[in-house]
Design a protein around this nucleic acid. Structure first.
Lengths: 207, 207
DNA sequence: TTCAATCTAAGACTTGAGGCGGAGAAAGAT
DNA sequence: ATCTTTCTCCGCCTCAAGTCTTAGATTGAA
């Protein structure tokens, strides 16, 4: 065996970091070179410690894991997402952002160690339902994927119960423009009115 | 100092248990007497190790934390709920079930140790917004309680995205009547339009 | 019996929402 | 250099939504 695999642990939960560090310390072929509790700190630490693998939590206070992954994936570090549950809203964005593996926090310590070894070797690990979800995602992507950024913003505000006037003020655009966006949203989502749009936004956790 | 506080750690995440155990082992006044990864195992272990305090996760595979709390709270053990986020759907049921303290997993290791000491001493700990939520829960029971049966029915249909006309047909009443109900709903819920009503209905799982 | 709550509904009125069609500007892709 | 996408905005039009006020019928409680 060569040099140990250098691991950076990123999680805003004290105890999760502690658990990971404790376990990984007994594994002889890997070494925790740093810890971070948010995305920004992760980027900072990664620039100093040059890890081979990063264990990354997704939900964190300051900068979330997706943002950090986007930045870090540009280097050659392998990012293993380690999250509490499979959330469609997070899964695909983070995979697109460049995550290399996707594990649930219910994983045993051993499974995590295996995933780290594989990642260092260039093999991704995807837990259970993730593969299925990816498959479904490919063949049946959500309708709101077709929305433009602006339309997405408007839909979010509709989902909060805002009127067109309020939206126009919040986005600094004219009411007419908002109406145009709304019409496009309704057409793309194949629904009839803003009420259904609001329901859609909430059901799909776009709010 | 007397005998150490006996702690039982219940969580289905390997790493969380490991993190807790690691930390608590350096605290001299407490001792982890057992670990469990679901509610059933927790009850079993508690019956054998007689802990003073139980750190309990809520979301677990087999038997969830609420069920386990209901059973265990009947003994004199103090149960500290340790969860990822404040979910109204879980908070009050688990408090009613007999939980003694409520902490977020974002807590520092030190905060958790403090909560354990306090619990052993008979003092509950509630983190941040929990107290506020409890207060609001007590004094501000859901607004839709004031709704009449008919209004409740109408609200549900609004929550499904139906128009007044559709509602009138579904309930075999006139559109004018539906409008009357809608107006009353908006007034009682203190909102402005049916879109907000739809969001309300969905958020409060009235659909 | 009397009173309060609920469900029903009407008329008159205002306004927000949404469709339809057109159009200019900027940015990227080819 | 041209085409496409996206974001911006206009006017015109229709209709659903919502307000306000009033009111009859029923039911159950005081």
């Amino acid at each position: 065996m060569n040099r140990p695999i250098k691991v950076l642990v990123v999680d805003d939960h004290d105890m999760v970091r502690m658990g990971l560090v404790t376990y990984l310390s007994v594994e002889e072929d890997m070494e925790v070179v740093g810890e971070a509790c948010d995305g920004a700190e992760a980027i900072d630490k990664a620039g100093k410690t040059f890890p081979d693998v990063i264990l990354m939590d997704l939900l964190m206070e300051k900068m979330n894991g997706i943002e950090a992954t986007k930045v870090l994936a540009k280097t050659n570090v392998k990012i293993i997402v380690l999250t509490s549950y499979i959330d469609d809203e997070m899964l695909f964005p983070v995979l697109e952002a460049g995550a290399f593996s996707y594990l649930l926090k219910t994983s045993s310590a051993d499974e995590i160690a295996q995933a780290i070894r594989k990642a260092a070797n260039g093999e991704p690990t995807f837990q259970g339902q993730v593969t299925q979800k990816m498959f479904r995602h490919m063949h049946n992507k959500p309708k709101h994927d077709e929305l433009t950024n602006r339309e997405h913003e408007v839909l979010c505000l509709i989902g909060k119960g805002k009127t067109n006037k309020e939206i126009s003020e919040e986005l600094f655009i004219g009411i007419k423009t908002v109406k145009t966006h709304v019409s496009h949203i309704l057409a793309k989502l194949e629904i009839e009115d803003r009420t259904q749009a609001a329901i859609y936004a909430n059901k799909n956790h776009l709010v």
